[in-house]
Write a protein that binds this DNA or RNA. Sequence first.
RNA 1: GCUCCCAUCGUCCAGAGGCCUAGGACUCAUGAUUUUCAUUCAUGCAACUCCGGUUCGAAUCCGGAUGGGAGUACCA
Length: 486
Amino acid sequence: MTKPVRVRFAPSPTGYLHVGGARTALFNWLFARARGGVFLLRIEDTDRTRYSPEALHDLIRDLKWLGLQWDEGEGVGGPHGPYTQSERLPLYKKAAEELIEKGAAYRCFCSAERLEELRAEQTAAGKPTGYDRRCRNLDPEESRRRAEAGEPYVVRLKVPEEGDTVFHDFLRGDISTPNALLDDMVLLKRDGFPTYHMANVVDDHDMEITHILRGDEWIPSTSRHLLLYRAFGWEPPVFVHLPVILSPSGGKLSKRKGAASVGDFRDKGYLPEALFNFLALLGWGPGDDRELMTKEEMVSAFSLERISPKSAAFDETKLEWFNEQTIQRKPLAELLPFFRESLASAGLDCGIVSEEALLRIVELTRPRVRLLGDFAAQCAFFFRAPSEYDPKGVKRAWKEGVDANMDLAVSALESWTGPVEAQALGTMLHELCEKNGVGPGQVMMPMRLALCGALVGPDVAEIVAILGVEETVRRIRAAQGALSAR
RNA sequence: GCUCCCAUCGUCCAGAGGCCUAGGACUCAUGAUUUUCAUUCAUGCAACUCCGGUUCGAAUCCGGAUGGGAGUACCA
């Protein structure tokens, strides 16, 4: 058997969790679950200037919200800890010294100013930018002396000056870069912190990561990573570079163009299952026509081979559809908290009806709900009598002879002794129409207008059953007063 | 500028040389159902970027062009 799969999501806590990052995490999670492997969360906080504790907090909240539990790492622990890079500094230092010792890396004492000037010159001359390797051949003894004397330095990797470096990407095959284009990258910064490249390689090796699934913006760096693995004498993992997610217009997906982070979508009223499902199908497909899938179904269908190397545009309309479908399928009781929240933020008090009636309202309302926040608007009339009537509805439903029909309905309701239940009430109303020779629309439409304030909503008899006979009559009378008296 | 990656309906996912007069989904349009809206169902619109090559045969393989994206930091 091959080694057990170990994958990681290694975000940098510098901002919100972008959906692209979430999708990367999701593919890692899916792959780990599909292969019975381990999914771990490592925090890459080597950039001290951009680090933010709130970002870390949000990141963890959003990952959990999406349902991407990790088996090892931040907050969970495990045998390869610590899982936060700022707590692993001695490891990187040791690794860097090992490379200097081997002659695979060297100390560079060049100042930031010099490098800036160098870059400016190169740009002006239209040449590729890169370090000119001035310190590369410094005498090892001198280098040591200057370091010991306290002169600040960075550690750089000695990249071969000729030939090509080739690595294998699982989705794209061999990718080759001329070494002449790879400058001697910094491994250890002046502040003693490792760069991403260094920390990443050391940690992935230490944590026995078998597959790296990450965004394809890392492709250009992977050759250097491979060089690092070689310098250490380590076996590199399998590289799988995931395509980026684009905005519908083709550019980057950003907050400015609407939502971009997981938190944005949660706030807009999306269910985590819907976002999960949608994101999984961006760049991956089960190979058949299935689209609405449970996590379990996605896990069992998942394979690396089916990931597309092509970048995908984020189409929120389709996400909405996933959300709507997820809402239709979710057990009513699980929808209740979201329903309550929507009503509360609209200032509606759902305490005025029974729990049972509430569930019924959720059931009747959800076919009209795409975002969780739609609940309130779709069922407000259950909790508050209409204060005005949609003019278009009035024009359509409140015609000649409506008053008489409403009187008919009111007296039938007032003398109703049967159960206050949708089916019985529906039958009664239809029989009433038949007996009096009026079309059902002549009675139902104005009733709906009186009850809801507009010509939209669930079955009229259903509404009556929930509102009760008394409230129904009151609303019909109110409508008659407001509309017929004009 | 240089290097790398990508390329099927507007969008997402199928298609790994003949099964393709290119399939499914979202959106949109039309129709059916319904007392209304929504749901549901049916139908329709709509694509292989271009040019060469390989082959009896190419959406599928190769080369180039074009377009899009990424990288080019002591950021990740």
